[in-house]
Computed example of a mutant assay.
Amino acid sequence: MQVLRWDGGGPMLATRDSSTLTVLIGTFAVLWLLWAIKKQRKAAVHPLPPGPRGLPIVGYLPFVGTELHTKFHQLCGIYGPIYKVWLGNKLSIVISSPSLVKEVVRDQDAIFSNRDTNIVGRTITYGGADIALSLNCPNWKMLRKIFVREMLSPTNLDITLALRREEVRKTIRNVYDKKGTHIDLGDLAFITVMNAIMNMLWGGTLRGEEGAKFGAEFKHIFAELVMILGKPNVSDLFPALARFDLQGIRRKAKRISETIDRVLDYAIDKQIKSLAKAKEEGTTKTEQKDFLQVLLELSEQDDGAPSMIMTQIKALVFLS
């Protein structure tokens, strides 16, 4: 079909067929370009392991059930020792053989060490400032060196031996005072371990009734924290909903974090004043040295090594 168009100087001839052909060629070029890009991306990305099919948006989440380990064991029998599971918008890779675990946690640990932390973990660790949730970087290596060589060195463990021994003696006296009555050994062991840990953290800083008060408050906080850490959070599975905090878990974690912060601020302020007083008097605290004192002394060293900031000290003390 021919169409005549007047353009001042004379008639011009245009064809609808040529316009259609131009559109088709352009569309084909765009489709070919998109196909080439997609093929290139597929070639660059390694294929994922097999796994169960899920539903749109929620993935395999409705079929997991309450016993996660049992379901994962069942899926292992179907898909093998490594498989993928979509939980909401999060892709999880499950491994269940000793050889693969060894490959991940030891042989290739530098690759797999970084992890996607949940909201509660980031909130209580000051954005992942502790050794457990920090990314594999020079900062993490510094924290690991401090944790292993300083806090848990034989010398410092020997220094805190008196603190641990005192807690064990208190437990023995407590059992002796309750002779002839029923005793929950599990609860008793838990309290003894918690008291020993609290004593090692700041036993030389907060003594007597003051230390017992803060220890009891910390144990209550820790129990509540364990509950929300293990609670499934919709915000973790669907990051787009995180801003709404539908279950209120982030608010609870924030409240716990603020309580922990107040306790640690008090203990750190008291220890700093004690160290400053000892420095003015020309003496050094050598007895009843706790982890908090060790960290504060390390942060004040001027040996050219990277020093810790206060949030890292708090995170290490609380999650040691």
Rank of each mutant, 00 (worst) to 15 (best):
M1P: 06
Q2G: 13
W6P: 07
G10Y: 02
M12T: 11
A14M: 10
S19I: 05
S19G: 05
T20Y: 05
L24M: 08
G26E: 15
L31K: 10
L34F: 04
K38S: 07
A43G: 12
A44W: 00
L48H: 11
R53Q: 07
E67T: 03
L68Q: 12
H73G: 14
I78M: 07
Y79G: 07
I82L: 11
K84V: 00
L100K: 10
A110L: 12
I111R: 00
F112Y: 15
T117P: 07
N118L: 00
N118F: 08
N118I: 04
G127M: 06
D130A: 02
D130Y: 09
L135S: 14
P138G: 04
N139V: 11
N139E: 12
W140I: 09
R149K: 13
M151V: 15
L152V: 09
N156L: 10
A162I: 05
R164P: 01
N174G: 14
N174T: 11
V175H: 08
D177Q: 13
T192R: 10
M200A: 11
R207P: 00
E210L: 09
K213Y: 14
F214W: 15
F214L: 11
G215A: 03
K219P: 03
V226F: 06
M227G: 09
V234P: 09
S235A: 07
F238E: 12
R243W: 14
R255I: 02
E258M: 08
I260S: 07
I268E: 02
L275G: 10
A278C: 06
E281T: 03
M308P: 05
M310H: 00
A315C: 07
